[in-house]
């Protein structure tokens, strides 16, 4: 069972890489979908470069949101930041009702077109699940464990770094995983505001009514999202199988 899952994962990864690096080999598969002599494989840019740009944008935004969200989560769970906890939780709840497209659309008038609004929208939207999970993770540390940590002479900082954060880490990682998957999807929409990425392929397909393009962009991003989701989940299991 587990071996089958590994084979499936490696197969999916191989398929994605093959498609991105030598897309022309897949032309016969997509040809039936391209009508009226339209090209079967996206020809307005290098797929591998687009995928790389897509991934870079998502990872950069995610890195930023992780740093900020975890820092904020730590801040509001300290005694000195407790005043900000109710509001920050209400904000996260409110923020999660915000559609990703709206975040993106509202960023454009503020900063203009291109990579920047996408990056900022992804960063902002990515904050929510990570912050939420950081707060829940830090607050759900068993009281006895915290008491024992202080009782043994850990300073507040030692307690945070060697007890609280490691214990909250599985939940924080889960937040990062959710954030990554949402962002891979949202980044495709970024192409409507001229960000580089696989969304370009889909949009091009939608505009020229070429389903082959749409399918290529869709499958590539879908595979990327599934693989990333699965990869982080596997990492979580590997790191935290002990508790």
């Amino acid at each position: 069972m587990r071996r089958a899952a590994t084979v499936l994962r490696l197969g999916a990864l191989g398929l994605l890489l093959a498609f991105l690096l030598v897309p022309q080999r897949f032309a016969p598969l997509f040809a039936p979908l391209a009508h009226g002599g339209a090209p079967a494989i996206y020809d307005q840019g290098n797929l591998a470069m687009l995928a790389l740009a897509h991934l870079t944008t998502v990872l950069a935004a995610c890195l930023g949101s992780t740093v900020v969200a975890v820092a904020l989560g730590i801040l509001v769970t300290r005694a000195s930041g407790a005043e900000f906890l109710p509001l920050s939780r209400a904000l996260v709840n409110f923020g999660q009702t915000f559609p990703p497209v709206a975040v993106l659309a509202l960023a454009v008038p503020l900063i203009g077109f291109g990579e920047k609004p996408t990056l900022i929208a992804l960063f902002l939207y990515g904050l929510l699940p990570i912050f939420e999970n950081t707060v829940v993770g830090l607050r759900s540390c068993p009281a006895a464990v915290l008491e024992a940590a202080s009782g043994m002479g850990m300073s507040a900082r030692q307690r945070l770094f060697s007890v609280e954060l490691p214990l909250a880490m599985p939940l924080i990682l889960e937040g990062i995983r959710i954030s990554l998957v949402i962002n891979i999807g949202t980044a495709t929409i970024g192409s409507t505001v001229a960000a580089k990425g696989l969304g370009e392929v889909i949009i091009a397909g939608l505009l020229s009514n070429n389903t082959a393009f749409v399918l290529q962009g869709g499958l590539a991003t879908g595979l990327m999202a599934v693989l990333l989701y699965d990869g982080v989940a596997a990492l979580e299991r590997r790191l935290y199988r002990n508790y």
Binding site: L215, G218, T221, A225, V226
Partner: peptide, 14 residues
Amino acid sequence: QTVPSIALFGILMA
């Protein structure tokens, strides 16, 4: 759930 929405919309068009 992990398939990006815009991609799923597009894929279902076919």
